[in-house]
Amino acid sequence: MLIQIGTDQVVHGDEELIRHFEEELTTRLSRFSDHITRLEAHFKEEAADDGMNRCCVLEARPAGRRTVAVSHHAGSVDEACRGAVHKLESMYGRADHRKGGDSIRHQSGPAGS
């Protein structure tokens, strides 16, 4: 799974921050590495009713499927990342545990062949 991290002008993406989040995302999402070929993380600061807050947008690019995007707003980039990862984990957990999901997804030809 290739991980790409981007930041806006306010959330500075120095080497330490990028390395930290690459490790965090790799660790938390490693069980989905067979499904996700590329993961893009975007960190930015946005205006909120109570001031400024951080936002993490995760775009997962699964093999043979549409891109999945989730976002989470929080007071820090760490909290925003954890929240977005949790949402992505929930989405993939639901997809893998749907009744008949595996047999439908892995079926290679018409029924009965």
Score class of each variant (00 low, 15 high):
1 M>D: 05
4 Q>A: 10
4 Q>P: 00
4 Q>V: 07
5 I>K: 02
5 I>P: 01
5 I>A: 01
6 G>I: 01
6 G>S: 14
7 T>H: 00
8 D>E: 10
9 Q>K: 13
12 H>V: 06
12 H>N: 06
13 G>L: 01
13 G>H: 00
13 G>K: 00
14 D>W: 00
15 E>H: 08
15 E>D: 15
18 I>S: 04
18 I>V: 15
20 H>D: 12
20 H>S: 13
21 F>N: 01
21 F>A: 00
21 F>R: 02
22 E>I: 08
22 E>H: 15
23 E>C: 06
23 E>W: 08
24 E>S: 11
24 E>V: 15
25 L>C: 09
25 L>F: 06
25 L>N: 00
27 T>N: 13
27 T>I: 10
28 R>C: 03
29 L>I: 09
30 S>N: 13
31 R>Q: 11
32 F>P: 01
33 S>F: 06
34 D>I: 03
35 H>R: 14
36 I>Y: 02
36 I>R: 02
37 T>L: 09
37 T>G: 12
38 R>V: 08
39 L>G: 04
40 E>Q: 15
41 A>I: 03
45 E>A: 04
46 E>L: 12
46 E>N: 06
47 A>I: 06
48 A>T: 15
50 D>I: 09
51 G>V: 14
52 M>D: 11
53 N>A: 07
53 N>Y: 03
53 N>Q: 15
54 R>L: 00
54 R>M: 10
55 C>W: 01
56 C>G: 05
57 V>C: 04
58 L>V: 02
63 A>C: 10
63 A>G: 10
63 A>T: 14
64 G>F: 04
65 R>C: 03
66 R>W: 03
66 R>E: 11
66 R>H: 06
67 T>D: 12
68 V>C: 08
69 A>Y: 03
70 V>C: 08
70 V>R: 02
71 S>M: 06
72 H>C: 13
72 H>M: 03
73 H>R: 15
73 H>F: 11
75 G>E: 15
75 G>L: 12
76 S>R: 14
78 D>V: 03
78 D>Q: 13
79 E>P: 04
80 A>V: 08
80 A>I: 04
81 C>I: 03
81 C>D: 03
82 R>N: 13
82 R>C: 05
82 R>Y: 12
83 G>A: 10
83 G>W: 06
84 A>Y: 00
84 A>I: 00
84 A>L: 02
84 A>D: 04
86 H>P: 01
86 H>L: 12
87 K>H: 09
87 K>C: 01
87 K>N: 05
88 L>C: 05
88 L>F: 05
91 M>R: 08
91 M>S: 04
91 M>T: 07
92 Y>G: 04
93 G>H: 14
93 G>L: 10
93 G>V: 11
94 R>M: 09
97 H>P: 05
98 R>I: 08
100 G>E: 03
101 G>Q: 07
102 D>Y: 14
102 D>F: 11
104 I>C: 05
104 I>L: 14
105 R>C: 07
106 H>C: 05
106 H>R: 13
106 H>T: 07
107 Q>S: 12
107 Q>E: 12
109 G>K: 14
110 P>I: 12
110 P>N: 10
111 A>V: 12
112 G>F: 09
113 S>Y: 09
